[in-house]
Write a protein that binds this DNA or RNA. Sequence first.
RNA 1: GCGAGAGUGGCGGAAUGGCAGACGCGCUGGAUUUAGGAUCCAGUCCUGUAAGGGGUGGGGGUUCAAGUCCCCCCUUUCGCACCA
Length: 832
Amino acid sequence: MTDKTEKKMKYNFKEIESKWQAAWDEEELYRAPENPDPKREKFYMLVMFAYPSGDIHMGHFRNYIIGDAVARRQMMMGRQVLHPFGWDAFGLPAERAAIKRGLHPADWTYKNIEVSRRTLKKVGVSFDWAREVISCSPEYYKWTQWFFVQLFKKGLAYQKEGLVNWCPEDKTVLANEQVVDGRCERCDTIVEKKMLKQWYYKITDYADRLIDDLDTLPGWPENLKTMQKEWIGRSWGAEIDFTIKETGEKLPIFTTRPDTIFGVTFMAIAPESPLIDSLNLSGKHKAVVDEYRAKAMKRSEIDRASVTGEKDGVFTGKYAINPFNGEEIQLWVADYVLAHYGTGAVMAVPGHDSRDFAFAKKYDIPIKIVIHPDEKSKLDLKKMDDAYTEYGVMVNSGQFNGLAGQDALDKVTEFAEKKGFGRKKKNFKLRDWLISRQRYWGAPIPIIHCPKCGPVAVPEENLPVMLPQVENYLPKGRSPLADVPEYMNVKCPKCGGEAQRDPDTQDTFVCSSWYYLRYIDPQNADKPFDKSLAGKWMPIDLYIGGITHATGHLIYFRFFHKFLNDIGWVKDNEPARNMFNHGMVLDSTGEVMSKSKGNVVSPVDLMDRRGIDISRLGMYFTAPSEKEVLWSEDVIVGIEKFILNRFYPLVENYRGSSPDLKYYFKDNELSAYEKELYIKLNQLIKRIDEDSERLQYNTVIAGLMEYVRDFDSGKVKNDKLNDYIILKLIQLIAPIAPHLAEEMWRQTGNVESVFKSQWPEYDPNAIVFENISIAVQVNGKLRGLLDINRDAPEDEVINLALNDARIKNHLDGKAIIKKIYIRNKLLNLVIK
RNA sequence: GCGAGAGUGGCGGAAUGGCAGACGCGCUGGAUUUAGGAUCCAGUCCUGUAAGGGGUGGGGGUUCAAGUCCCCCCUUUCGCACCA
């Protein structure tokens, strides 16, 4: 050991961490008030709750320390902070993992919660653990079921027979949002189509509001809002009734291009569409169509979508009539038509739609041009190898010739409306939310099917419908609960007759659609939550989570909140005022960390070696919070040096003068160096405050490093200033390095927690220097720096510049034609 | 294909239209040390001995001034993907 290292203070992080964690627990530092004082400001800091699939990993660690820094700073700003945590504990992955290990899903889940909770406590995240919620507990899912019943009462939970996404591996149906590129989001198996009767939430009733209200959320990232808008996919157009020639029956279609109506040369129906049945096909055509439909049904969605432009279909032998011109057109069945969008049938305009163009070419169907780019340039069909899909001027369209743009769309639609064979129409890509799952590990659907009364909601006083403990919970294609007679066989709550429970459970995303409200009143046995408490805590002031939930959870929970708003349970239309998407944590090669790849870095291991706060600072410092991180421990080397050699030893320079932290120093109290330090301190406070608002902790740390580097305590004569600086620095680092800051704070003689001290505010009279340096440019290029007095008059600055040897050189005796002077910043001389 | 981002040293990354590369890693040199994977000091965009010149994916533009704003292109990430 050399002299130097001996002098250095030892940072015994293990001791310090456990000491202050115990103390914070003891004084219940993180407890949010049961009933917040409406006169004081509140801050609801929400991080997405966790799926207990093992211990927490680097991604969780990053996510939660970001929220933690926000919560702690808010605490210091005097807000009443609600920073809760819980577990998204039901669901398929947990069930699958449990099965793999031969464990009951409940045992597996609770064990993981235990382990993860311990780790999170070790990280020292400021969660109010007294409000912890676990979505698979009966006390919680009782209310998940209650929400089902409320939706059911309003007609927003309904059963429908239809084609659904079926995962053959997980043996359950999936919501549209859980199918990614035609595969099961969870197990990557190609999803099949099945005809099944399932429960849906009518989220499409809220489609307009889910889009329109995004404009009331300036605190949400634009890209996220765009993703939601596109997912919901609103488009305006017209519905127009064609008629079947033989039967006179109507065949409505949806189009966004009514201006191309005269270019229709055939129609196509989706193979799944029941419309085909009503055509009453017979003979040869029926055989061909039946075969084609069977073939199409077998093809998976990806298969159908990935066909590189190659479309196919079969002619039905039937014709339809275009109501606009009476033309007879062929009626086809084609699998490029989607059964679930619009009416399941389309009018095909090969001249002006690429898909129709390809199809018409393949089957030698006529192509008609009815739109020209403008009055002068005309299309030549012979030269076209694709459709012209832009808007333009209507031609070959009878009375509508010459109309263009929006006017064309409107006039055609108005005409159809007047004649009674068409109407304005709005369509969405969003489909209703399929919430039934044929799996064991979920909240049972609180419905009893009675042969006489139909589906009857379980009376609210009988909730929860308990998930029975069963031996056999393996997926088998129908719900495992269906084979538990003592569960299934019940009396109808309406007529008292023999009836059966619905055997399915609810999608986990239902559980996660309302958890943020349960935190507000987690023990309430009579209600999901107390309305007046919710009124005080809501809305969420900041919601932090991954962008991966953009078109799933983050739409579902907005939908739930709007529904609750409609039935009078919450007063806001939107649940979260601000949303922040943190970046992912990948390994150093850019791979996602996963157990199977064996590249998982454990935050526990890191913290054991380096200490919690140094690990935290390393993570913050690597990248701004919204960017992804390729995790490497290299960055920690610099952080560790900074904390161990520079920051922590600051307490040694503390002189015990206990300065008033609200006091602002006056000019005449300070020497030149002291004044410089003081001004720089105020600049630092301002900068850290602004960066913290943006969650940009990397630059917060950089700012602290610079300041501490320039702060030479030995040269400071004024004890109060010296101590003032040290105390402010401790406060500034507290949100991101809580244990270190608390230790230093107490070592300087404070008896209350640093988190009960007031967050620094800068002295508005001391954030600028008297003498500043401004840039001098010649023709926009930097040619020199001038030291001037702040606010020096323009003439003086110009004079100084003109007499500066280096600048003179660049002026080269040429005439100055323009002088641009930005006060205290820059002078640009334009010469010729 | 459509939509939204992103592109800055060897690396992570800074920069309300106003001094590009803060801060850190790495690297180079030096000091100290029995030793260094410790500590401290200095240097580190390219070119040039220097003065200077050039430089933020490429090309154009707006401006006194562009990494930043506008247009085109390239690369890349994410989302959607036959939505009629």
